[in-house]
């Protein structure tokens, strides 16, 4: 089959985008998690966010997406959040009764991405044979792969991925690495929270520590 050598869909490079975090403090449920955090990412860069459970990785990602307001400091992005962010959270945002075909078509349409991009991306993540299965019948790893395709279909420059490799097998992690490399090649920015060691080339690391 072609699946190993197939190409990524033709999508134009992104307008340069940068993301900067300045003196951000975050808390959750009244508990301070992150204090005075700062970093900046420029086009093509990737950042891996590590740290024990409960150190605020997800909260930081939600703050970057504008879903949570920081206690102090600011998140600066030179584009509005809706035009900049592609989000892959804890859950994949799939509906158990909806087939991947219909779900991915919907997400492509609503983001104004061509439906022609769906199959090449599914091929990249090796889930083409599952296209007519309802998401509820897929394994966790297969759902994650579908979630990654959905995030890529958003065609947004900043990817925020929360545990992207969590349920993936070894081959899945390789495919994730290729997908991320493709995105960075287009001038995209990737920020991923992870417990696994992801051997992506040339990435920045940021370790969150438990608050004192």
């Amino acid at each position: 089959m072609l699946s190993q050598t197939a190409d990524f869909p033709e999508m134009t490079p992104f307008e340069p985008v940068s993301l900067a975090v300045d003196g951000v403090s975050l808390s959750r449920g009244g508990l301070r998690l992150v204090s005075d955090l700062g970093f900046a990412l420029t086009p093509g860069e990737a950042l891996l966010l590590t740290g024990a459970n409960g150190t605020g990785k997800t909260t930081l990602m939600r703050a970057l997406a504008g879903l949570v307001r920081p206690d102090a400091g600011q998140v600066r992005c030179d584009r509005p959040v809706e035009d900049a962010i592609a989000w892959l959270g804890h859950s994949d945002g799939l509906k158990p009764g909806e087939s991947l075909r219909l779900a991915l078509r919907f997400w492509a349409d609503i983001h104004g991405t061509s439906r022609k991009a769906i199959l090449p991306l599914m091929r990249q993540l090796d889930i083409v044979p599952l296209i007519d299965r309802p998401a509820g019948q897929l394994s966790r790893g297969q759902q994650r792969r579908a979630g990654l395709v959905r995030a890529a279909l958003a065609n947004r420059p900043v990817w925020l991925l929360d545990e992207p490799a969590g349920p993936l097998d070894g081959a899945g992690r390789d495919r994730l690495a290729r997908l991320v490399a493709w995105h960075r090649g287009r001038g995209g920015v990737v920020l991923a929270a992870t417990h696994q060691t992801l051997d992506w080339p040339d990435v920045k690391h940021l370790a969150l520590k438990a608050a004192a």
């Binding site: 959270g89 859950s91 994949d92 945002g93 509906k95």
Partner: peptide, 11 residues
């Protein structure tokens, strides 16, 4: 199922 997060990020 996380759909609401995604909806909140739509233009």
């Amino acid at each position: 199922d996380g759909t609401l997060d995604l909806y909140a990020l739509l233009p």
